[in-house]
């Protein structure tokens, strides 16, 4: 029996699929070096007293103690909480409502969708700057209303420390709600048309169909939207920089800006590391319940 050599022997494990493995090197490197390596590096160095340069002089939880004792960080967290809760609720409500309106066989649907979504194409810097201008008390909305005759009207969120975060919220929602609308719309379109027919045959009013039937069916879409909004919230940075630079005073500081300032402006690296580790922790707190809901119980193929 003539057996040609080379093909009868089992090749080495490592060499099997070699091209695919070589092609995956960038992915493996990114996953291991950047996402795992850099994250661990930062977490480790957050327990040191690194100032201008990173050094491995461990000081336990000192940086975290200092962090939670700093007023600026506390203001940042409070702002993030307000911004987060409001933007989560409002974006979901607005996004879903607009999607539901557009799903009602509206003429010029594409035009409406184009208008509602274009802010998402703009950067946070552009968004922040244009809303800074619109909310300018001397020329913007406040002045317009005063010109109409209501001379005592006051609406200057960017100059009022108590409500400045809501000024940023206005811009944030304007920029991001279109995306959620699109996702919700895709979710609505994914629902079997027969559901609507059945609801109509049963004589259920439209609004009730949405609340009782449609929204529960769209649970996965809502979860996706929720995760999307939430992971965006933690990263809020550019918008604040453009709109208020954290002001007035420190009234509109956010954690991401705190991290940047500590790391790159005030040469207090370990503080920045500690603050960013806190951001990571908060993301994990958001992600774990989601991962549990999404993947817990049943495994997906």
């Amino acid at each position: 029996m003539a057996t040609s050599p080379g093909t009868s022997k089992r090749p080495m494990r490592l060499l099997r699929n070699l091209n695919a493995k070589i092609a995956s090197i960038p992915m493996v490197a990114t996953a291991l070096v950047i996402f795992v390596g850099c994250t661990l590096w930062t977490v480790v160095y957050s327990f040191t007293d690194s100032k201008l340069l990173p050094r491995l002089n461990f000081v336990g939880f000192d940086q975290y103690d200092r962090l939670w004792g700093t007023r600026r960080w506390l203001v940042s967290i409070e702002n993030l909480a307000w911004y987060g809760v409001c933007s989560l609720i409002l974006t979901l409500v607005i996004g879903f409502t607009l999607a539901a309106l557009l799903d009602r066989k509206v003429r010029f649907e594409n035009t409406f969708r184009t208008i509602l979504l274009y802010p998402f194409a703009l950067s946070f810097i552009v968004t922040g700057l244009v809303w800074q201008w619109i909310l300018n008390p001397d020329f913007g909305v406040q002045q317009v209303v005063r010109d109409w005759g209501w001379t005592s009207f006051t609406f200057d969120p960017l100059y009022n420390p108590d409500i400045v975060i809501f000024g940023i919220l206005i811009a944030g929602i304007w920029q991001g709600s279109g995306l959620i609308m699109v996702i919700m719309l895709a979710g609505l379109r994914g629902i079997d048309e027969d559901i609507w027919k059945a609801a109509r045959v049963d004589g259920i009013p439209t609004w009730k169909t949405y609340v009782v039937v449609i929204i529960p069916m769209m649970r996965p879409v809502f979860v996706t939207a929720l995760v999307l909004i939430a992971s965006g919230i933690v990263k809020v940075y550019d918008l604040v920089v453009a709109q208020t630079s954290g002001g007035p005073g420190i009234a509109s500081e956010v954690p991401a800006k705190y991290v940047y300032d500590k790391m790159f402006a005030s040469q207090n690296l370990a503080q920045g590391f500690a603050a960013s580790t806190m951001m990571l922790v908060s993301v994990i707190i958001i992600l774990i319940p989601w991962a549990y809901l999404e993947f817990g119980g049943k495994k997906r193929g």
Partner: peptide
């Protein structure tokens, strides 16, 4: 598909680990 064990011969040639095209 890579087999776990055993052999495949085609025209008296052991092709168990040969590429499909070969």
């Amino acid at each position: 598909l890579d087999v776990t064990d055993g052999e495949i011969h085609i025209n008296d040639r052991n092709v168990t680990w040969a590429e499909p095209s070969e």
